[in-house]
Structure formats: C-alpha cells, structure tokens
Design a protein around this nucleic acid. Structure first.
Length: 354
DNA sequence: AAATCGGGGAT
DNA sequence: ATCCCAGATTT
C-alpha cells in the first residue's frame, strides 16, 4: 500500500533527531502505560520525575495493585488530575485479577481499562505491541490541522472523529510504534504551538497552512474556558504534635486528597469572621490560640481559588475528628496549596518555634 | 455536547 | 493574562 508523502517525510525526518526519554527505551506495556497516564495533559518536563518515582516504587503491575490508594496518591501529590491516580490503581487491580497480572494485548481490552481512552489505548497498543492504532494527542491535532490547513475544530465530537480518521489513514501500519513516536516528536520539536520552525521543517513545501499563512491560528478550538472564583477556609487544629486531617469525598476538585477541616464561603473573609462565624460551623472548640493566618491564591484551569488557612493550637480533645502526627503527614497527599503551607508552617519552622 | 478535573511554564 | 500540555470522565 502506497504511503502518503506526509508519512514518508515524517519517518525520514525522525531518523535525523534524537529525543531520548525514559519510557522510550522499553517495550514493557506496564511502564509505557504508567508514562502515558502521567503525561496526560502534562508536559514531559513536569511528568518525567513522577514517572521515574512511580516505576521505582512500583516496578510491576502487581506492586501497584498491592499498594493502597493513599500510598499511590502520596507519590502523585502535586501532579494534578488526581483521578488519573485513582483509575491507575483501579486498572492495576483489574489487570492483577482478571488478567492474572499480564497486561492485556488487545486494543479493545486496553481501551476498557479505567483511565484509558482512545489516545492512551493507541499509544500502549503501538509502543508495546506495534499494533496499527494511530495516536491523536495535542501534537497530532496541531500537526494535521496545519498540514492540511483544516479549520475543523478539535474540541467537538465530529472534529475528533475526522482527525482520528485522517490519522488512521496516514499511519504506517508496519511501523506503528515508530510512526506514532515520530508524529509526536515532530509536533513537540518542529510544529510547535507558537513560532513553529517552518524554515527548517521537512514538510514546508507540502504544508498548506504555511502556504496560506494560517499556522498561527491552528488548530481551531470552539470553546473558551471560564474560570470561577472560590473561597476556601481551612482550619489547622493542632493539639501537641498532631493536627486534624480529613479526606475529601465529594465529586469536586482534589477528590480523595487529604485536607484540613474547611468550609467554602461566598462572603468576604476576615480573620474575625473566620473565628466568630465559621469556626463554630466546622467544630465545637472553646479554648484555642491563634498561631497564624495566611491567604494564598491558586489559579487553576477552571478555578481561581483563594485559600485562607488559619492555624490554631488547643489542648482540647475533639471527638469525631482524626488527629495525625505532623511527622506522619508525608504519607498523605494534600493539594499543592496545603502541601506548601505544611512545609513552611509545620515542618521547616517547627524547630524554630520549639 | 459541554463541563470538569491541577499544576506549571511559555508567551 | 492566556494558552497549552503524550486526555478521560462526568454531567
């Protein structure tokens, strides 16, 4: 079957580059899987250390399946999109039990695992087994929309279908792993989001976006993100060397991570309102000292979070709440803003206070 | 179909 | 400030 000029030039170009990444030197589907989950919506530079940490702590799928969700979360802490970790753990248990610890080899089986969608199933299938499934990630959307000057939006279901179809036609079915690796490397190194390297691009005579000077506006997205503001008040209740922590349960941001007792407020927040109005709603505590009060702002993709953290010390025993020694907090995963507060206020400064 | 899920780095 | 990242799941 005759290959598209795009495919030929892509594979030719790929021979000339050298982009070594830790997960490229293996064909172990388990390690490839870990890398793909870590890298979902995550830059290589941000995810690499997490990948290495996970592989070190969980060398096999059995190790991952035998661990606890909390322990996995402690390694995932700070990376974001924590449902990835929950689904990773779920899938590991499925592989351990239903597949007897052997990673499934069929695309259809892989696709059914929690946390694995079309992209990740194609990535594992091709990189581990060389199966002819084309990956379509952010790189691929950008490269294909530009090469064909396609203004079809990438964030609609019809658009996604069309780009997947094009990708499935372009893939070299005999060199699936090589081709998929090449097109993502190409998007990362040459056909970059801003200021693509068209002057050295091997496709510069074929690329329609370059001919039409439309590369900078591609790919097209229809929806624009709107960010909502939220105000959280966290109460750090310390008795001796222990603080109260709890697990976030709701289907909300930071689900299954740990936090301090808190409430969300829509009104103006002052230190006085925290003590007089909010604290009684969180717990019944009579005698306490205020050690510190800090505010932090954290801008996320969909939320602008103002975190107010008040640190109280008390000698009261508070029922229905779990006190955890400060030197055990490392075993629990906290949202980034709380993790940083813990480091500066509970861990590093503790010796200075005492 | 649209909203949601984190955090970081480049522009 | 806005965009984007080796996307998937829930609403």
């Amino acid at each position: 079957m005759k290959k598209h000029p795009f495919t030929n030039k892509l594979l030719q170009w790929h021979k000339t580059i050298d982009r070594e990444l830790p997960w490229k030197s293996t064909s172990d589907p388990y390690k490839i899987w870990i890398s793909e989950i870590v890298l979902q919506q995550t830059r290589v530079s941000q995810g690499t250390s997490y990948y290495l940490k996970l592989i070190k702590n969980y060398p096999t799928v059995q190790d991952l399946a035998n661990s606890s969700e909390d322990e996995l979360f402690s390694h995932w802490q700070g990376l974001g999109y924590y449902s990835r970790a929950r689904n990773l753990h779920k899938a590991a248990k499925i592989i351990a039990t239903e597949y007897n610890g052997t990673f499934p080899k069929l695309y259809s089986q892989i696709l059914q695992l929690p946390g694995i969608g079309p992209y990740t199933a194609a990535a594992i299938s091709s990189f581990a087994y060389n199966l002819p499934h084309a990956v379509v990630d952010g790189n691929v959307y950008r490269v294909l929309s530009r090469y064909f000057d396609s203004h079809e939006p990438i964030d609609t279901s019809t658009g996604k279908k069309k780009y997947q179809q094009i990708a499935d036609q372009l893939i070299d079915r005999d060199k699936a792993a090589l081709y998929n690796q090449a097109i993502m490397d190409f998007g990362a190194l040459i056909c970059t989001p801003s200021q693509p390297h068209c002057d050295t691009c091997p496709m510069q005579y074929d690329c329609k976006a370059l001919a039409e000077a439309t590369a900078h506006m591609l790919p097209v997205k229809t929806r624009k993100i709107k960010r909502k503001t939220r105000k959280f008040v966290f109460f750090v209740i310390q008795n001796g060397d222990a603080v109260i922590i709890e697990k976030r349960q709701n289907n909300d941001i930071w689900k299954a991570l740990y936090q301090f007792p808190m409430l969300e407020s829509t009104s103006t927040i002052t230190e006085e309102s925290i003590i007089k109005l909010m604290l009684p709603r969180v717990m019944n505590i009579k005698h306490f000292n205020i050690r510190s009060y800090n505010s932090h702002q954290q801008k996320l993709t969909h939320q602008d979070i103002f975190a107010h953290i008040i640190h109280l010390t008390t000698t009261e025993q508070i029922t229905d709440h779990t006190f955890t020694p400060i030197n055990k907090l490392a075993y629990y995963a906290f949202p980034k803003v709380l993790q940083q507060w813990i480091e500066t206020h509970l861990l590093s400064s503790q010796k200075v206070i005492n």
